[in-house]
Nucleic acid binder design. Sequence first.
DNA 1: GTCATTGCAAAGGATTTGCAGTTCC
DNA 2: GGAACTGCAAATCCTTTGCAATGAC
Lengths: 153, 153
Amino acid sequence: MKLSSDELHARFRRHALRLTRQRAAIYSALASVNSHPTADDLYRTVKQRYPMMSLNTVYYTLSVLCRAGLVQEVNVGHDVARFDGNVTAHHHLICVGCRQIVDVIDEGLNQLAVSRGQARGFRILGHRVEFHGYCAGCQRAMLDVPPRNGQKH
Amino acid sequence: MKLSSDELHARFRRHALRLTRQRAAIYSALASVNSHPTADDLYRTVKQRYPMMSLNTVYYTLSVLCRAGLVQEVNVGHDVARFDGNVTAHHHLICVGCRQIVDVIDEGLNQLAVSRGQARGFRILGHRVEFHGYCAGCQRAMLDVPPRNGQKH
DNA sequence: GTCATTGCAAAGGATTTGCAGTTCC
DNA sequence: GGAACTGCAAATCCTTTGCAATGAC
């Protein structure tokens, strides 16, 4: 959903972050979408309104926002980094066909813990669950076009 | 643990993979260790016995083994890829300090499922759970040296 | 006014690709 | 014998870094 200007200012102030036009644009774009875009996706989106925006700034801003906890980085394999403006507890469904990422909200998954015996003295800060599979669209596509060998994923 | 030559041949044959000296060395090195090495770690290990080994071959071999299911790629953030010769169901404990990865064997975690309502038509193939935290060693180190600001992670 | 942030260009580094020679099945 | 694998070098691509100019607080 769209973020109000007041809310935006409040969030940045709460985390003691300077609010620049670029940051507002990048964070708003990310927070208003649930598609887990890459840095480059965000760059292209934001550049439409701020043509002087540099990709570097997108990366730098995302790293600042990540560190502040306003944004989360999501990993799908070792390809490009993808970002998530939703920092409430949730997990992900990942399509190994088209790489789309869908949020999973499930209180049970939020409560997972490692047994004492397995924890090996770790102090656990959090956890992530990723489900891998084929989304509805990719399943349909596989029915239409029979699978080939050597297909990546 | 060390892998017998017979078992090695059997595994490769079972997956219809050609067994070369390089592949034997790479796979043995990975299967006999539980430290989740990078491609470069494996390269350096294996190069000691096979000095002509190329890093490219390590990458190529790992990709073949991954696709065959003899090896698993593990992601820790978006830095280097790390590999796991243990392909039985298990999950990971990841130290955000020193980046070490420790296996978690827990039947409960293996049984996780997404509720029908959340699955959005996905056909789930598998899932992974990552616990993030500080290992015992990093906790001790933090006590000795008080934390600084701006510390990555 | 000060210091973080920005934009540009260039560097860095993990991984992939092209290709000729070699080797396994 | 032929397809797959290997090694070398070069290319690719995401991300980071250096640095001077700018702008937020």
